[in-house]
Amino acid sequence: MKLITHNMLSSNIIKGVKNGYPLGIQATDVQVNEVDFNPDFVARIIPKLQWPILCQAAESIGHLGDLPKELISDFESNEEFLKKAHHILMEIEVKEGNLVCPETGRKFPISNGILNMLLNEDEV
């Protein structure tokens, strides 16, 4: 599970859950993999992200590094910044652990990198 995905995920498929955002992260195995850097993609995705949530998520698994907690205004043209964002968004992967619904505490296990969001019939 990459942090770009975590930034978009919501547990609002559970009956009665309103926003289901952001999901908490409990990670027991985090890996870093190299992914090709595409500055255009990163620049285009940043406005769609919840930046503070990204920083919070990265920090909670010990990978914030020197990523600025405040989104800079000229990010589109700042390659250095885009590289850092790329690293956090695309290269850090939670392989084992749980995501946690902020409203119900329901855990969604991550194993072998696959996030399990299958609900029981009584949660639908």
């Binding site: 992914v35 996030l115 299958l118 609900l119």
Partner: peptide, 8 residues
Amino acid sequence: EGDLIYGD
């Protein structure tokens, strides 16, 4: 390369 979710 994609992230995978097990779900319905």
